[in-house]
Write a protein that binds this DNA or RNA. Structure first.
Lengths: 124, 124
DNA sequence: TCGAACCATCACATAGATGTGAAGGTCAAA
DNA sequence: TTTGACCTTCACATCTATGTGATGGTTCGA
C-alpha cells in the first residue's frame, strides 16, 4: 500500500511515516515511480512504534527493540552481541520502572475518581 | 532543604527543579534571602514527577494528576469540575494504553532474551 | 576580609518528535 | 489534455524537556 493508506489506517501523519523510515524503524519498498510501497504488516508495526514513542521510548531504542518482536524470532540471535544484550536488559529494566510508575499513578487516579464521583452529591 | 540537597537526593539537575516550579508542579517556600526552601515531602514528589515524565506524560498533564495523589485526598474534590474529571478519565485511559503497550513489549523482550541466552552456546 | 560554595535570575542552545509548506513528478479520470 | 489527488524531496518552524553559561548576591570558614 502507499503512504496515504498507511497514514489513514494507522492515524499517523505522512510526515511521521517518513520520519520513522529516516530513523530506520520501517523500511518500505519502492515502486518503479519512486512511491513508497508498504507491506501489510507495517500497519501493526507503526501502531506499535507510536505506542512505544508515546510511552517515552526514543526511536533509537525502539529500533533495537523491534527485531525482538518478529515472529520467527529464532533467525536473529546469532548477531546478538553481549553489549547489545546488556542494552536490551537495561531497557527492559527501565520499562519495568515505567510500568510500575504508571500503574501506581493510574491506581491513584482511579481511586480519586471513585471518591470524587461517589462524593459528588453529598459534598459540602 | 535548599535546591542543592534536593537535587542530590533526587538525582535531578537544579535547572530542572526550577523548571518544574515554573511549570507549577512544585511550589517551594522562600527563605528570607530568596533561596528556595523545599519541604521534605517534595523529595518523593520530584521522583514521581520524573517517573511520569519518563513515561511520556507532559508537565501540563502531570500538573493535573498530582493533586490526586495527596494523602488527605478528601479535601480537594469540591473544586473538581466535570470537564476536569473528563480530562482525568481520558488520561487514565491513555495511561492504561501505555501500560498495555509497555507490558506487551517488555514480555516480548524478556522472551527474546531468554531464547538468545539459552541458545547462545548451541547457535549455528 | 577573602575565597569557596552555595544561591538567584536570565538567556541562549540543543535534541527529538512533530507541523507546515514549497516545488515538482505521476497517474487516472473527465 | 487538463485537472485533481496522489506522491516525491527539502527546508524551515515549533514545542517540550533539557544543557550550559553569564552575572551577581549570600554565607561561612580560613
Amino acid at each position: 500500500m502507499r503512504i496515504g493508506e498507511l497514514s489513514e489506517r494507522t492515524g499517523t501523519p505522512r510526515r511521521l511515516l517518513r520520519y520513522y523510515e529516516e530513523q530506520g524503524l520501517i523500511v518500505p519498498a519502492r515502486c518503479a515511480n519512486g512511491y513508497r510501497d508498504y507491506d501489510e504488516r507495517l500497519v501493526d508495526r507503526v501502531v506499535q512504534i507510536r505506542g512505544l514513542l508515546d510511552a517515552g521510548l526514543p526511536t533509537r531504542i525502539i529500533k533495537q527493540i523491534l527485531p525482538c518482536l518478529d515472529k520467527p524470532r529464532v533467525i536473529h540471535f546469532p548477531d546478538a552481541t553481549p553489549e547489545m544484550l546488556a542494552t536490551l536488559q537495561g531497557e527492559l529494566d527501565r520499562m519495568n520502572d515505567r510500568i510500575t510508575c504508571l500503574t501506581r499513578n493510574r491506581d491513584a487516579i482511579e481511586e480519586y475518581l471513585d471518591v470524587v464521583r461517589s462524593g459528588e452529591r453529598s459534598a459540602s
